[in-house]
Write a protein that binds this DNA or RNA. Sequence first.
DNA 1: AGGAGGACGTTCTCGTTCCGTAAGGTGCCG
DNA 2: CGGCACCTTACGGAACGAGAACGTCCTCCT
Lengths: 261, 261
Amino acid sequence: MSEALDAPALPAPVPRRILVVDDDPTVAEVVSGYLQRAGYAVDRAVDGRAALERAAALHPDLVVLDLMLPEIDGLEVCRRLRAEPLSQAVPIVMLTAKGDEHDRILGLELGADDYVTKPFSPRELVLRIQSVLRRSAGAAAPAAAVDEGPFTAGDLRVDPTARRAWRGARELTLTLREFDLLAFLLGHPGTAFGRDELMRRVWGWDFGDLSTVTVHVRRLREKIEDDPAAPRLITTVWGVGYRFDPSDAPGRAAETAVPHA
Amino acid sequence: MSEALDAPALPAPVPRRILVVDDDPTVAEVVSGYLQRAGYAVDRAVDGRAALERAAALHPDLVVLDLMLPEIDGLEVCRRLRAEPLSQAVPIVMLTAKGDEHDRILGLELGADDYVTKPFSPRELVLRIQSVLRRSAGAAAPAAAVDEGPFTAGDLRVDPTARRAWRGARELTLTLREFDLLAFLLGHPGTAFGRDELMRRVWGWDFGDLSTVTVHVRRLREKIEDDPAAPRLITTVWGVGYRFDPSDAPGRAAETAVPHA
DNA sequence: AGGAGGACGTTCTCGTTCCGTAAGGTGCCG
DNA sequence: CGGCACCTTACGGAACGAGAACGTCCTCCT
């Protein structure tokens, strides 16, 4: 998803196309639903042959590939995708049976970018996919060079491409979520966001426990605020959510009261 | 869940029809009551079959759906609603048993828009429903341009996106309700509103003690008026309600004759 | 492999803030 | 002068956010 990173400048990131390949209708249904919900355009194929056709026709941004397939199995699909120049670079996430270590390793060798073992939680799958997309976007960002160069607010600096952040001269050690959260807020200075909206735009979920956001804001404050107990950068808006306040020039604030009357 | 009451300046919402599907009369009764008091028209169904019939007949704006149902269970109802073009887009809020993660996920896959775990607080359910309605309404109306730039009247300034307000150069510390109230009034300068109308447009309720409005107007005056005892910004219109008076040009706008002798 | 460490999501408790309502007071109108 | 509408104040409860701690999963290192 990197939606969290694209969002600052790109209001509506181009919806990514994902091809889901699975012969089990239930699994395909569940996965498709989750991905659509996360904002992706989903196409489906039920066997290896169809998968290759769809991939050639659609040029998806990512392929979710079940290993056990009729006609042509997942490993073979993977191999052929990698052989074809047009689909050579497409990220592949494999679905493998639990403990099927051998196929998994083989899949990785054939060029799969990640794997998820069945039974899997759809949530986890989405996370993996987002992670893979982020990685590959970072690796091959030729046309997508629209990606923000490092941007700044106050004495905070964030480099989305490098995934690094600084406070003044000191580099911050942020986790993945913390970084995404900070990057998003920095990209929308002065705007208040509800927890639910942060959940959607940073986490990419429509649901989930909103206290998760609270906790991560707390952890982030711990790392970037001078006094986490009295946050000046990430302000709490009571009953609403949070807001990043760019207090660029300390001492220049306009406390000039207009002595009306 | 707190976001439901955030809409400060939305025009009066069209009364929405909600279909409540639950086989437990007590639950259905309680939920219906709360929803009706929140201003929704409520229809009820006790099993899956009836639910589908009612949905087809009424085209409700939202469906509250219990998972455990006689005849046809909630998941199946959900599936069929989604299969039917006419009901394909209707938002669905599911009621699931606590910790029934599997059904919950499956429900979301089948197209539910949110879920609430039993036992739930009716209040929370109403908030979720409002949230879902707002989301789907927003999705359907892309050019809504809800984003108000910060706007001004006199020396008052309100920034809805940042949720901040200033009087002259001094920033005001407003609570959620106070802010919404001020934002609404600022957005309709010179217009008098009855307490009941403010209740509906600021609070979003069709019921409730109107003195609540009185008290909040008082608290707001306390923060923005030079002399809360002789309010110049938020004027009382006797027998009607309140009105915001933009006294832009000092010395010019004194058409409000001071009655006092 | 096995174990240590970190990241993340969840849950619980606690203190604070906010909000709605009730009750009595005051001013406006007939 | 009586009645009504509005004002003012106070209070109890509920909602909210902060903080701390736990359990789980993943990753990395040995």
